[in-house]
């Protein structure tokens, strides 16, 4: 599988272990997140959740059957003009991505807002 290697060996191991049917979608999402937030460090939290963080974790990626969910830990603070965030919890909001033609602008906007809100 070809992908931009992470500086974290565990992240690379994790990506290589992804099933073929979900890997392209996962990699597309990862590429968009890292393009929008190049300052993010990637790590694996718990057993198999990829998280993007700076001094704190901000976004978690969870791979499900045929979908990749991005959980914004402080999603409640995001302005959701694209109406793609789900959830009614007190803090987290989720963006579910099921196909390669997902809304990259929306994802970029959410990631950039996340970074802006942490400053």
């Amino acid at each position: 599988m070809k992908f931009k290697k992470s500086k974290n060996d565990i992240v690379n191991d994790y990506i290589e272990s992804l099933e073929d049917d979900i890997a392209p979608l996962f990699l597309a999402v990862r590429e968009s997140v890292l393009a929008a937030g190049p300052v993010f460090n990637e790590s694996i939290k718990w057993k198999n959740c990829l998280v993007y963080g700076t001094t704190k974790n901000h976004i978690q990626t969870v791979v499900g059957k045929g979908k990749v969910s991005l959980i914004f830990f402080d999603g409640v603070s995001l302005k959701d003009k694209h109406a793609l965030l789900e959830g009614d919890g007190s803090k987290a909001r989720t963006m579910r991505i099921t196909s390669l033609d997902f809304n990259k602008n929306a994802l970029t906007d959410y990631v950039q807002q996340t970074l802006k809100n942490t400053k």
């Binding site: 939290k45 057993k47 978690q60 830990f73």
Partner: peptide, 18 residues
């Protein structure tokens, strides 16, 4: 716990679980 960033601990734990 999942929101807290623990650079070293997270990596060690994940590597151990796997």
């Amino acid at each position: 716990y999942i929101e807290a960033s623990s650079v070293l601990q997270d990596n060690l734990m994940s590597a151990s679980y796997n």
